[in-house]
Amino acid sequence: MWFAYCCSVRTNASSHPYAVEVEGLVVQYDQITAVNSVSFAARTGKVTVILGSNGAGKTSTLEVCEGFRRPTSGSVRVLGFDPLHERGALNQHMGVMLQDGGVYPSSRVGEVIDHYCALYGNRMVAKDLVERVGLTHRQSSTWRRLSGGEKQRLSLALALAAKPDIAFLDEPTAGVDVEGREMIRDVVRELSSSGCTVIMATHELDEAERCADDVIVFHQAAIVASGTLQSLRQGHDEIRFTTERGIDPVALSAHIGTTVVQDGADYVVAGTSDARIIGLISDWLAEQHQGLDNLRAGSQRLEEIFRRLTQRSKS
């Protein structure tokens, strides 16, 4: 467990159930409201994923929590600190991965990681960090010569240099290859299992599904849903299947006594994963001399939940 020893520097807030508490947060830029009266709390030591499309208000919220941005109104506490007025104290405990940039283009990978380790009093060994993020072979490369994925790896290493009690990761997997994504997920899990709170903003539902303990869904500057993945999925079971040839969903609906809708190549029965309904579908298809293909039953994928939540918010 590479990160097991990482969270030895603890604040008084670490015993508090919530590492981040946001109440009535509003962020406005001129006439645009980027964050509109948002309230949430992120559990200490857990991975909270802030999910939303581009421009939904994720980064603005994160920037207020990190102390980069003054909120128009509302209150924010991170590890018990006010990020704006107690920034120096918070910075001792916080690791930050920006959405992009943050490094001088002519700086070399090894030098930047060395530099950041020194800024945090060498809590981490630079060589170990370079190795952990898979950049050993790129140590002498400059930032401008790194690929998008390598830049993300370096940014993650800079966040880890803090040996953080709380890590804010803004779109950490954007532009990262499959291997890199797996490494980032491993690091997130290691951080969490060592007691570090991770707040991760992303628009990639797959990442949320793989990493999150809790999910907060942003849409058009507001929160449209929040809770554990399990709670978001609760009551959203479905049966999804395909057939060899097209069928009449209305006729099938009449047979099974619940509505069947077509979604692309799939036929979907929303709100249930009952085996009895699956049996009725199978019988009806057999009568029609049709096979039952690609049958899936259970909780909706986060993608569908997200789509439904954001569509409901629009309507």
Partner: peptide
Amino acid sequence: GFERSYGVLKRLGATPLG
């Protein structure tokens, strides 16, 4: 000025440097 536009200052602002 360039450090500011590259986000270097922003990134340093989240460290204990001050």
